[in-house]
Design a protein around this nucleic acid. Sequence first.
DNA 1: AATTATTTGTGAAAAGTTACACGAATCACT
DNA 2: AGTGATTCGTGTAACTTTTCACAAATAATT
Lengths: 206, 206
Amino acid sequence: MVDVPDIVIGRLPIYLRELTRLAEEENQTTTSSHELGQRLGISSAQIRKDLSHFGEFGKQGTGYHINYLIEQLREILHLTQEWPVALIGAGYLGHALAHYDGFKPRGFVITCVFDNDPRKIGENLNGLVVSDIHDMESIIQEKNIKIAILATPANTAQEITDRLVKAGVKAILNYAPIHLNVPPDVQVSYSDPVVQLQRMTYYLTP
Amino acid sequence: MVDVPDIVIGRLPIYLRELTRLAEEENQTTTSSHELGQRLGISSAQIRKDLSHFGEFGKQGTGYHINYLIEQLREILHLTQEWPVALIGAGYLGHALAHYDGFKPRGFVITCVFDNDPRKIGENLNGLVVSDIHDMESIIQEKNIKIAILATPANTAQEITDRLVKAGVKAILNYAPIHLNVPPDVQVSYSDPVVQLQRMTYYLTP
DNA sequence: AATTATTTGTGAAAAGTTACACGAATCACT
DNA sequence: AGTGATTCGTGTAACTTTTCACAAATAATT
């Protein structure tokens, strides 16, 4: 279990999401690697191989008990605790993230919001008061926050990242359209809509 | 040039983004695969291999002329035209996307916005009037739109996707937390912040 | 009880991706 | 003009990831 490829880890949240759907919307208690793969456009063999890195969760002839597999995946992904998250940036995107109701049921709670714009500081954002970015480090350390969502313009992103890392943050979800330099023990995940659109236009005929 | 791996295509927009930065912010006219790789955390050999799928853009001893390489990448990715984009969903996320000023300079223009909520229809969203989703197909076909951004709740996403595909859309950027089923000639790109966070928590010690 | 149909977990093969390393071209400097 | 330093493009090797295919276990059916 020591050295599971990151590409495998990246699929586990997608399995978890679809399993939750199967349980909640289709009211199923059991599924198979074949059914899950069908629904996700992934081969059944890949799903079985992925899961086999962590143990034996299925039963020949039957498949997987959905609630049990959900529980196992939540443990593997360290989702048995709720993770507090710092949100940096209270612009339109910050608003959208602060109001998103999909975080809580899947393990995350936005706990504080920061901005450097005096007009935004003090604003109430879905129950959270926007704090001065000057206080970012102290609040993050006080609340022992390890995850941040970066929703600022590109020109401040690296500078804020450096401050987040110094404050002890170990995972950053970056919405700014820029590559971030971080130490090897800090995770970064990127979300630049234009990069995603440009990848797709390659396949389109102009 | 016929069969370039998708994983290579996915890196080209990142090269393009960093090259633009080098040109605009660092005022450089020339760079090397080594410098570009350093800045992006990618090996120089990989950058050269990636580019070699499409031609020979560099010069031994010198490297790459940035503006020329940008132009070539824009042609490869079909970014010499501006792409009109339909935005589905005028909630908080729709607002954020409609106000994002990063689309235009990188090749995309949100041209129409749809929602099914009567309170939102008619609303002015950064210069765009929100249309009734009932009119989605006719407007998309009339404007010959091939790209859509899906910013709706999960429970309507597949149904709207089916309608988009019927209307001729060939690329969908999906923010709803759900896998979409589409025909093989339609591209889908996913952006679910929770999936990205969950991938990172695997590496965090709880 | 025996037979047939499912389905898992996995070793081995196949396919895909990345890194290495080097010839060749170019540039900078003496 | 010659020497040394850069840098590209690329064939090959190393590594990673996916697919295949099958024994073993279970369930359903006769």
